[in-house]
Nucleic acid binder design. Structure first.
Length: 220
DNA sequence: CACCAGGCAAGTA
DNA sequence: TACTTGCATGGT
């Protein structure tokens, strides 16, 4: 018997199909994208990334040598560009100091240790770090974002004021511990989140509405 | 015109 | 601990 989180996943997968996340080729591009899309539409982050590519800056050595102000100018379209330039530079310096400027070395670290290391960096909060661990590192870490909170709390599956860690724990406890599943699930939640209204408590076009109706009669 | 998007950190009480 | 505010562009 499937639990509610598994049912929702199946419903979303049937409705939206595979999302093929993260939409990037290299690990560095995933990490840069994770920072650039903070509280920003993917479209704007994507434009900033293509701008970096045009200037051949999507490399650790290039990013290490560029000035903060020059980098900020190039990622302008992603918003908060001064902050994000500092955040990226900060990460590159961390990589240089701790991992000889090598992502493959960094990803040899144990997950919990690496998570704490990344969380200690300026501008790297839980969602950003978990995106990096999951999508660049293929670690079984569930990414909790604004859509996850909104959709699950709206339907009573989590508390509106639950902490990031608690939401993550509640979901993780109810699905199989496979990175590919975590990957697809978060991407599907984003697909759903983009399609629904932000303010209305429930939405009629929600493709998982029948599952949520059923949920009202079950215990969790 | 207002509101929002795949957050985060610093300040305040 | 629990709110509030600054950061900023581009689409609807």
């Amino acid at each position: 018997m499937l639990n509610i989180f598994e049912k929702i996943y199946n419903e979303l997968y049937c409705y939206y199909g595979p999302q093929k996340w993260w939409p990037a080729k290299t690990k560095l591009e995933i990490i840069v994208g994770a920072v650039l899309t903070q509280n920003t539409s993917w479209r704007n982050a994507e434009n900033a990334i293509s701008n970096l590519k045009k200037n051949k800056l999507l490399s650790l050595r290039r990013l290490l040598s560029i000035d903060d102000t020059d980098l900020a100018l190039l990622i302008r379209s992603s918003g908060y560009y001064n902050l994000k330039a500092k955040r990226l530079k900060n990460l590159i310096i961390f990589l240089k100091n701790e991992y000889e400027l090598s992502l493959s070395r960094m990803f040899k670290s144990e997950t919990d240790f690496l998570r704490e290391q990344l969380l200690s960096l300026y501008g790297f909060g839980e969602e950003t770090v978990d995106c990096i661990l999951l999508y660049a590192g293929q670690r079984p870490v569930f990414v909790v974002d604004a859509y996850t909170r909104r959709i699950f709390s709206r339907h009573g599956l989590i508390g509106a004021k639950d902490s990031y860690a608690l939401i993550q724990a509640k979901i993780t406890a109810n699905i199989k511990n496979k990175p590919a599943l975590f990957n697809e699930y978060h991407a599907l939640i984003v697909a759903l989140g983009k399609s629904i209204c932000r303010k209305k408590p429930l939405c009629h076009i929600c493709p998982v509405s029948k599952i949520f109706k059923q949920a009202a009669y079950e215990k969790y």
